[in-house]
Simulated assay, not measured.
Amino acid sequence: MKIAFTAPMKPLDHPVPSGDRTMGRLIVRALESLGHEVTVASRFRAWRKDGSDTIQQQVRDNALAEAERVASDWEQTGYRPDLFLTYHLYHKAPDWIGPALADRFDLPYAIVEASRAPKRQTGDWAFGFAAADAALKRADAVAAIHNADLECLAAIVPHRNLSVLLPFLDAAPFLAASADAKPLAAAPLKLMAVGMMRDGDKQRSYEVLAAALNELRDTPWHLTIIGDGPMRAQVEALFPPDRTTFLGALEQDALAAQYARHDLLVWPAIREAFGLVLLEAQAAGLGVIAGDTFGVPDIVLDGETGLLSPEGDVGALAANLGKVLGTPSLADELGAAAREHILNVHTLEAGAARLNALIEKAKRNHLTARTSDTA
Score class of each variant (00 low, 15 high):
117 A>R: 07
205 S>K: 08
346 H>W: 11
297 P>A: 05
51 G>M: 05
250 L>P: 05
153 L>D: 04
191 L>M: 06
292 D>A: 12
62 N>T: 08
42 S>Q: 01
287 G>L: 06
304 E>F: 07
240 P>E: 12
177 A>E: 12
180 D>S: 15
87 Y>Q: 11
372 S>N: 14
160 R>H: 15
375 A>M: 13
323 K>D: 09
315 G>S: 15
229 G>H: 14
16 V>L: 05
164 V>L: 09
192 M>T: 02
79 Y>F: 08
222 H>P: 09
289 I>F: 03
30 A>V: 11
152 C>P: 04
189 L>R: 15
158 P>K: 13
227 G>E: 02
299 I>W: 08
272 E>M: 03
87 Y>C: 10
288 V>A: 04
50 D>M: 00
70 V>N: 06
70 V>G: 02
360 E>G: 10
298 D>G: 00
109 Y>M: 09
293 T>G: 04
172 A>Y: 07
348 L>V: 11
62 N>C: 06
5 F>M: 10
45 R>L: 07
167 P>F: 11
132 A>S: 14
229 G>N: 08
141 A>S: 09
4 A>K: 05
140 D>L: 04
29 R>S: 13
176 A>C: 00
233 A>E: 02
127 F>R: 06
72 S>M: 01
129 F>S: 14
367 L>G: 07
62 N>W: 05
297 P>M: 13
37 E>N: 12
211 A>I: 02
291 G>C: 01
91 H>D: 15
56 Q>M: 12
6 T>L: 15
317 L>R: 10
196 M>S: 15
251 E>N: 07
63 A>R: 00
7 A>F: 13
231 M>N: 10
129 F>P: 04
59 V>M: 09
214 N>F: 03
341 H>D: 15
32 E>M: 00
171 A>C: 03
329 S>R: 07
311 E>C: 04
334 L>N: 08
224 T>I: 04
205 S>V: 07
152 C>F: 06
344 N>S: 14
51 G>P: 02
244 T>M: 05
197 M>H: 10
24 G>V: 00
63 A>V: 00
280 E>Q: 14
169 L>H: 13
